[in-house]
Design a protein around this nucleic acid. Structure first.
Lengths: 147, 147
DNA sequence: CAGGATCCAATACGATACTG
DNA sequence: CAGTATCGTATTGGATCCTG
Protein backbone atom coordinates (compact mmCIF):
# COMPACT_ATOMS: atom_id res chain seq x y z
CA UNK A 1 0.00 0.00 0.00
CA UNK A 2 1.68 3.22 0.99
CA UNK A 3 3.89 3.13 4.04
CA UNK A 4 5.02 6.71 4.12
CA UNK A 5 6.12 6.05 7.66
CA UNK A 6 5.31 3.01 9.70
CA UNK A 7 2.08 3.58 11.55
CA UNK A 8 1.36 -0.12 11.71
CA UNK A 9 3.19 -0.40 15.02
CA UNK A 10 1.70 2.75 16.48
CA UNK A 11 0.51 2.61 20.05
CA UNK A 12 -2.44 4.79 19.09
CA UNK A 13 -5.42 2.87 17.75
CA UNK A 14 -6.45 5.80 15.59
CA UNK A 15 -3.13 5.68 13.80
CA UNK A 16 -3.28 1.95 13.42
CA UNK A 17 -6.76 2.10 11.98
CA UNK A 18 -5.77 4.75 9.51
CA UNK A 19 -2.72 2.75 8.57
CA UNK A 20 -5.03 0.05 7.30
CA UNK A 21 -8.04 1.89 5.92
CA UNK A 22 -6.93 5.52 5.88
CA UNK A 23 -6.19 5.75 2.18
CA UNK A 24 -8.29 7.48 -0.42
CA UNK A 25 -10.34 4.51 -1.55
CA UNK A 26 -10.68 1.86 1.13
CA UNK A 27 -13.48 3.43 3.14
CA UNK A 28 -15.43 4.17 -0.03
CA UNK A 29 -15.14 0.53 -1.00
CA UNK A 30 -16.36 -0.44 2.45
CA UNK A 31 -19.23 2.01 2.12
CA UNK A 32 -20.24 0.40 -1.16
CA UNK A 33 -20.01 -3.01 0.44
CA UNK A 34 -22.44 -1.86 3.15
CA UNK A 35 -24.55 -0.61 0.29
CA UNK A 36 -24.75 -4.06 -1.18
CA UNK A 37 -21.91 -4.12 -3.69
CA UNK A 38 -20.22 -7.51 -3.98
CA UNK A 39 -18.73 -7.74 -7.46
CA UNK A 40 -15.62 -6.19 -8.90
CA UNK A 41 -17.66 -4.43 -11.55
CA UNK A 42 -20.12 -3.02 -9.06
CA UNK A 43 -17.38 -1.33 -7.10
CA UNK A 44 -15.75 -0.12 -10.28
CA UNK A 45 -18.92 1.40 -11.68
CA UNK A 46 -19.87 3.05 -8.42
CA UNK A 47 -16.45 4.48 -7.68
CA UNK A 48 -15.18 5.18 -11.18
CA UNK A 49 -11.83 3.88 -10.05
CA UNK A 50 -9.26 2.32 -12.34
CA UNK A 51 -9.17 -1.46 -12.40
CA UNK A 52 -5.62 -1.73 -11.22
CA UNK A 53 -6.15 0.40 -8.15
CA UNK A 54 -9.43 -1.30 -7.37
CA UNK A 55 -7.83 -4.72 -7.57
CA UNK A 56 -4.98 -3.65 -5.30
CA UNK A 57 -7.35 -2.07 -2.78
CA UNK A 58 -9.61 -5.11 -2.72
CA UNK A 59 -6.60 -7.31 -2.12
CA UNK A 60 -5.46 -5.03 0.65
CA UNK A 61 -8.83 -5.11 2.36
CA UNK A 62 -8.93 -8.89 2.06
CA UNK A 63 -5.43 -9.13 3.51
CA UNK A 64 -6.52 -6.87 6.35
CA UNK A 65 -9.51 -9.08 7.07
CA UNK A 66 -12.08 -6.41 6.27
CA UNK A 67 -13.37 -8.20 3.19
CA UNK A 68 -13.47 -11.88 2.34
CA UNK A 69 -13.79 -13.55 -1.02
CA UNK A 70 -16.56 -16.05 -1.56
CA UNK A 71 -17.80 -17.96 -4.54
CA UNK A 72 -20.04 -15.84 -6.70
CA UNK A 73 -23.63 -15.54 -5.61
CA UNK A 74 -24.83 -15.73 -9.21
CA UNK A 75 -23.01 -18.93 -10.06
CA UNK A 76 -20.50 -17.24 -12.34
CA UNK A 77 -16.89 -18.25 -12.35
CA UNK A 78 -15.80 -15.23 -10.40
CA UNK A 79 -15.96 -14.31 -6.78
CA UNK A 80 -17.79 -11.96 -4.48
CA UNK A 81 -16.28 -9.63 -1.93
CA UNK A 82 -18.22 -9.58 1.29
CA UNK A 83 -17.70 -7.80 4.58
CA UNK A 84 -16.25 -9.85 7.42
CA UNK A 85 -17.19 -9.13 11.04
CA UNK A 86 -14.16 -6.86 11.15
CA UNK A 87 -15.53 -5.06 8.14
CA UNK A 88 -19.05 -4.86 9.54
CA UNK A 89 -17.57 -3.29 12.64
CA UNK A 90 -16.63 -0.27 10.55
CA UNK A 91 -20.29 0.71 10.47
CA UNK A 92 -19.96 3.39 13.16
CA UNK A 93 -16.99 4.87 11.29
CA UNK A 94 -18.99 5.16 8.08
CA UNK A 95 -21.99 6.57 9.93
CA UNK A 96 -19.82 9.11 11.73
CA UNK A 97 -18.27 10.27 8.47
CA UNK A 98 -21.67 10.44 6.84
CA UNK A 99 -23.21 12.50 9.62
CA UNK A 100 -20.28 14.88 9.69
CA UNK A 101 -20.47 15.32 5.95
CA UNK A 102 -24.20 15.96 6.07
CA UNK A 103 -23.80 18.54 8.78
CA UNK A 104 -20.77 20.43 7.49
CA UNK A 105 -20.05 19.70 3.85
CA UNK A 106 -23.25 20.79 2.12
CA UNK A 107 -24.75 24.17 1.54
CA UNK A 108 -28.22 24.58 3.01
CA UNK A 109 -30.72 22.85 0.77
CA UNK A 110 -28.09 21.05 -1.29
CA UNK A 111 -29.30 17.51 -1.86
CA UNK A 112 -27.45 14.45 -0.63
CA UNK A 113 -28.15 10.79 -0.10
CA UNK A 114 -29.36 9.71 3.30
CA UNK A 115 -28.94 6.60 5.43
CA UNK A 116 -32.30 5.55 6.82
CA UNK A 117 -33.95 2.79 8.77
CA UNK A 118 -35.21 0.15 6.32
CA UNK A 119 -38.26 -0.32 8.46
CA UNK A 120 -39.65 3.19 8.64
CA UNK A 121 -37.46 5.19 6.28
CA UNK A 122 -36.46 7.59 9.02
CA UNK A 123 -32.98 9.07 9.32
CA UNK A 124 -30.77 7.53 12.00
CA UNK A 125 -30.09 9.26 15.27
CA UNK A 126 -26.83 11.21 15.54
CA UNK A 127 -23.96 9.26 17.03
CA UNK A 128 -23.33 10.29 20.60
CA UNK A 129 -20.10 9.74 22.50
CA UNK A 130 -20.82 8.56 26.03
CA UNK A 131 -18.70 7.68 29.04
CA UNK A 132 -18.76 4.37 30.87
CA UNK A 133 -21.86 5.41 32.77
CA UNK A 134 -23.75 6.28 29.61
CA UNK A 135 -23.48 10.02 30.11
CA UNK A 136 -22.86 12.27 27.12
CA UNK A 137 -19.27 13.40 27.13
CA UNK A 138 -17.47 16.10 25.19
CA UNK A 139 -14.00 15.87 23.73
CA UNK A 140 -12.59 18.28 26.29
CA UNK A 141 -13.76 16.02 29.08
CA UNK A 142 -11.68 13.14 27.81
CA UNK A 143 -7.97 12.48 27.86
CA UNK A 144 -5.71 9.97 26.18
CA UNK A 145 -3.95 7.68 28.61
CA UNK A 146 -0.56 6.68 27.28
CA UNK A 147 -0.30 2.91 27.37
CA UNK B 1 -4.48 18.34 -1.95
CA UNK B 2 -5.05 15.38 -4.20
CA UNK B 3 -8.07 15.45 -6.48
CA UNK B 4 -7.71 12.05 -8.09
CA UNK B 5 -11.30 12.42 -9.18
CA UNK B 6 -13.70 15.04 -8.01
CA UNK B 7 -15.50 13.79 -4.93
CA UNK B 8 -16.15 17.30 -3.74
CA UNK B 9 -19.43 17.39 -5.60
CA UNK B 10 -20.47 13.90 -4.61
CA UNK B 11 -24.03 13.42 -3.50
CA UNK B 12 -22.82 10.99 -0.84
CA UNK B 13 -21.78 12.65 2.40
CA UNK B 14 -19.25 9.92 3.10
CA UNK B 15 -17.45 10.70 -0.13
CA UNK B 16 -17.59 14.40 0.52
CA UNK B 17 -16.18 13.98 3.99
CA UNK B 18 -13.36 11.83 2.72
CA UNK B 19 -12.67 14.34 0.00
CA UNK B 20 -11.78 16.84 2.68
CA UNK B 21 -10.21 14.80 5.43
CA UNK B 22 -9.67 11.39 3.87
CA UNK B 23 -5.98 11.74 3.20
CA UNK B 24 -3.18 10.11 5.14
CA UNK B 25 -2.49 12.89 7.58
CA UNK B 26 -5.48 15.12 8.18
CA UNK B 27 -7.29 12.95 10.71
CA UNK B 28 -4.07 12.37 12.63
CA UNK B 29 -3.59 16.12 12.83
CA UNK B 30 -7.16 16.46 14.09
CA UNK B 31 -6.54 13.71 16.63
CA UNK B 32 -3.50 15.59 17.92
CA UNK B 33 -5.54 18.76 18.10
CA UNK B 34 -8.09 16.96 20.27
CA UNK B 35 -5.12 15.82 22.28
CA UNK B 36 -4.10 19.39 22.98
CA UNK B 37 -1.59 20.14 20.23
CA UNK B 38 -1.76 23.71 19.00
CA UNK B 39 1.68 24.60 17.64
CA UNK B 40 3.35 23.67 14.38
CA UNK B 41 6.18 22.02 16.24
CA UNK B 42 3.88 20.00 18.44
CA UNK B 43 2.19 18.43 15.45
CA UNK B 44 5.51 17.86 13.77
CA UNK B 45 7.07 16.13 16.75
CA UNK B 46 4.06 13.97 17.40
CA UNK B 47 3.53 12.90 13.81
CA UNK B 48 7.10 12.83 12.54
CA UNK B 49 5.83 14.39 9.35
CA UNK B 50 7.91 16.53 7.02
CA UNK B 51 7.50 20.25 7.47
CA UNK B 52 6.32 20.87 3.94
CA UNK B 53 3.53 18.32 4.10
CA UNK B 54 2.51 19.47 7.56
CA UNK B 55 2.29 23.08 6.42
CA UNK B 56 0.21 22.11 3.41
CA UNK B 57 -2.13 19.94 5.49
CA UNK B 58 -2.59 22.63 8.13
CA UNK B 59 -3.43 25.10 5.39
CA UNK B 60 -5.88 22.65 3.91
CA UNK B 61 -7.61 22.08 7.24
CA UNK B 62 -7.81 25.80 7.84
CA UNK B 63 -9.26 26.31 4.36
CA UNK B 64 -11.79 23.58 5.08
CA UNK B 65 -12.80 25.26 8.31
CA UNK B 66 -11.69 22.39 10.53
CA UNK B 67 -8.89 24.37 12.12
CA UNK B 68 -8.52 28.09 12.71
CA UNK B 69 -5.42 30.13 13.34
CA UNK B 70 -5.23 32.29 16.42
CA UNK B 71 -2.54 34.39 17.98
CA UNK B 72 -0.14 32.30 19.99
CA UNK B 73 -1.22 31.39 23.49
CA UNK B 74 2.30 31.89 24.81
CA UNK B 75 2.74 35.39 23.40
CA UNK B 76 5.28 34.35 20.79
CA UNK B 77 5.21 35.82 17.33
CA UNK B 78 3.65 32.71 15.81
CA UNK B 79 0.18 31.35 15.74
CA UNK B 80 -1.80 28.48 17.18
CA UNK B 81 -4.01 26.07 15.31
CA UNK B 82 -7.23 25.34 17.15
CA UNK B 83 -10.25 23.24 16.33
CA UNK B 84 -13.32 25.06 15.09
CA UNK B 85 -16.82 23.77 15.83
CA UNK B 86 -16.60 21.91 12.52
CA UNK B 87 -13.39 20.34 13.72
CA UNK B 88 -14.79 19.51 17.14
CA UNK B 89 -17.64 17.76 15.39
CA UNK B 90 -15.16 15.19 14.13
CA UNK B 91 -14.98 13.75 17.63
CA UNK B 92 -17.29 10.82 16.87
CA UNK B 93 -15.22 9.99 13.78
CA UNK B 94 -12.03 9.85 15.82
CA UNK B 95 -13.69 7.83 18.55
CA UNK B 96 -15.12 5.39 16.03
CA UNK B 97 -11.72 4.87 14.43
CA UNK B 98 -10.12 4.46 17.83
CA UNK B 99 -12.59 1.88 19.03
CA UNK B 100 -12.33 -0.08 15.79
CA UNK B 101 -8.56 -0.04 16.02
CA UNK B 102 -8.62 -1.18 19.61
CA UNK B 103 -10.95 -4.02 18.82
CA UNK B 104 -9.40 -5.31 15.61
CA UNK B 105 -5.89 -4.02 15.08
CA UNK B 106 -4.05 -5.27 18.15
CA UNK B 107 -3.02 -8.72 19.21
CA UNK B 108 -4.44 -9.77 22.58
CA UNK B 109 -2.46 -8.14 25.34
CA UNK B 110 -0.67 -5.73 23.01
CA UNK B 111 -0.60 -2.32 24.69
CA UNK B 112 -2.21 0.76 23.22
CA UNK B 113 -3.23 4.18 24.39
CA UNK B 114 -6.75 4.65 25.62
CA UNK B 115 -9.27 7.47 25.56
CA UNK B 116 -10.82 7.89 29.00
CA UNK B 117 -13.14 10.11 30.94
CA UNK B 118 -11.09 12.85 32.58
CA UNK B 119 -13.29 12.64 35.62
CA UNK B 120 -13.02 8.98 36.55
CA UNK B 121 -10.41 7.60 34.17
CA UNK B 122 -12.78 5.02 32.79
CA UNK B 123 -12.85 4.00 29.14
CA UNK B 124 -15.68 5.45 27.08
CA UNK B 125 -18.70 3.41 26.10
CA UNK B 126 -18.66 1.89 22.62
CA UNK B 127 -20.38 4.00 19.98
CA UNK B 128 -23.77 2.59 19.11
CA UNK B 129 -25.70 3.33 15.94
CA UNK B 130 -29.36 3.93 16.71
CA UNK B 131 -32.43 4.69 14.64
CA UNK B 132 -34.68 7.70 15.08
CA UNK B 133 -36.46 6.02 17.97
CA UNK B 134 -33.23 5.31 19.81
CA UNK B 135 -33.24 1.60 19.05
CA UNK B 136 -29.98 -0.13 18.23
CA UNK B 137 -29.79 -0.76 14.50
CA UNK B 138 -27.49 -2.93 12.43
CA UNK B 139 -26.05 -2.05 9.04
CA UNK B 140 -28.26 -4.55 7.26
CA UNK B 141 -31.34 -2.86 8.66
CA UNK B 142 -30.44 0.41 7.00
CA UNK B 143 -30.53 1.55 3.42
CA UNK B 144 -29.17 4.55 1.55
CA UNK B 145 -31.87 6.72 0.04
CA UNK B 146 -30.66 8.34 -3.16
CA UNK B 147 -31.23 12.06 -2.93
C1' DC C 1 -16.88 -9.72 -17.01
C1' DA C 2 -12.70 -10.24 -13.70
C1' DG C 3 -8.20 -9.36 -13.41
C1' DG C 4 -3.16 -8.77 -14.39
C1' DA C 5 0.70 -6.31 -16.87
C1' DT C 6 2.60 -2.19 -18.69
C1' DC C 7 3.22 2.66 -19.57
C1' DC C 8 2.95 7.36 -18.14
C1' DA C 9 1.71 11.74 -15.83
C1' DA C 10 0.97 13.86 -11.53
C1' DT C 11 1.98 14.34 -6.89
C1' DA C 12 2.75 13.01 -2.10
C1' DC C 13 6.33 12.82 0.85
C1' DG C 14 10.97 13.13 2.99
C1' DA C 15 15.32 15.60 3.40
C1' DT C 16 17.67 19.58 3.23
C1' DA C 17 18.65 24.33 2.96
C1' DC C 18 17.03 29.08 3.66
C1' DT C 19 14.65 33.05 6.12
C1' DG C 20 12.95 35.95 9.99
C1' DC D 1 10.90 28.08 16.48
C1' DA D 2 7.64 28.50 12.21
C1' DG D 3 7.49 28.26 7.78
C1' DT D 4 8.83 28.41 2.63
C1' DA D 5 11.47 26.70 -1.34
C1' DT D 6 13.69 23.15 -3.85
C1' DC D 7 14.87 18.62 -5.17
C1' DG D 8 14.69 13.52 -5.63
C1' DT D 9 12.19 9.45 -5.22
C1' DA D 10 8.39 6.45 -4.61
C1' DT D 11 3.75 5.74 -5.39
C1' DT D 12 -0.61 6.86 -6.96
C1' DG D 13 -3.98 6.31 -10.25
C1' DG D 14 -5.74 6.48 -15.10
C1' DA D 15 -5.61 4.39 -19.72
C1' DT D 16 -4.72 0.72 -22.53
C1' DC D 17 -3.88 -3.92 -23.87
C1' DC D 18 -4.15 -8.82 -22.89
C1' DT D 19 -6.06 -13.20 -21.00
C1' DG D 20 -9.65 -16.87 -19.62
Amino acid sequence: MVKRVSLSDAECPVARSLDGIGDWWSLLIVRDAFDGARRFGEFQKSLRISKGILASRLQGLVALGVLAVTSASDGSAWQDYVLTPKGEALFPVIVALRQWGEAFCYRPGEPHSELVDRKDGKTLAPLIVRNADGEIIRARDTIVMKI
